[in-house]
Simulated scan of single mutants.
Amino acid sequence: MSKKFTAEVIGTFILVFFGCGAAVIAGADGTTGVGLTGISLSFGLAIVAAAYGIGAISGAHLNPAVSLGALLAGRIDGATFGAYVVAQVLGAVLGAAVLYLIASGSAGWDGGLGQNGYGPNYGAGYNLTSALAFEFVATFLFVTVILGATAAGAAPGFAGLAIGLTLAMIHIVGIKITGVSVNPARSIGPALFVGGDALKSLWVFLLAPLAGGALAGVLHAAGVTRAD
């Protein structure tokens, strides 16, 4: 379990550091930075890197919603779920901390760390209903893909690529809505350092992704989304 715990810490660090780092350092402005597509690909490629780098150790969940789905699908037990969630939150906080250390060294830094949010002062101004709906549906689809791609009988060796590309597509659709969480740990890390609205709205990015992941796990366990 210690190796799995460490793997989940490192993997979630990779996700936050490279995904949020692309937004903070590389820039969302497509004229002077990588743009929204570049940020989306950064999140997706971070998952691919972590999946192939540490997936053989822990499964590379990197996400409490994924671990909850795996628990309800019968893939892991309660003790593993608890350890994974702690590791994932720790990895996200460490990733945000290092990103904060680097970004704060720039005079042009606006204080953001790729935190999630919604409302008139965030992204394209989508409201709470839009944020909850997107995060729930996107997480359900994401975890469904993960459970299917890692199931017995799935094409071997391609799970990491399928999962990473799915996360990239989710970001392309949802960055302007919430900045895309689909992962409570990914939201917790930046919010702890940014504070303010990021912390006030954090409940959305805990509740909706966990509910979406739970539904995906229940349907998989019931055989609705399982090949057998």
Rank of each mutant, 00 (worst) to 15 (best):
Q115N: 11
D197Y: 11
A191N: 08
G38N: 13
N127L: 10
G19T: 10
G59V: 05
I76M: 05
L62V: 09
K176C: 02
G164D: 02
S181D: 04
A96H: 07
D29Y: 10
V224E: 11
T150V: 14
V224A: 15
G196H: 12
V218Q: 08
N127Y: 09
A23M: 14
A162Y: 03
F134S: 15
I54F: 12
A49G: 08
G196F: 02
I76P: 00
S104P: 00
A50N: 04
Y84C: 08
L113D: 05
L99V: 11
A28H: 08
Y118A: 10
T150L: 09
Y84W: 10
V16C: 00
F193Q: 08
A46R: 01
A92G: 15
F18D: 12
F5V: 06
L68N: 05
V86G: 01
A51K: 03
L94E: 07
L207D: 01
Y118C: 05
G78I: 13
T129S: 11
N183E: 04
G38D: 12
A151P: 00
W203L: 15
V66R: 02
T166K: 06
T150H: 05
L165F: 05
V66P: 00
Y84P: 01
A56R: 13
T37M: 13
Q115K: 04
I47C: 03
V93T: 07
A221D: 06
G55P: 00
A227H: 13
F140T: 07
F13G: 01
I102E: 13
I39E: 10
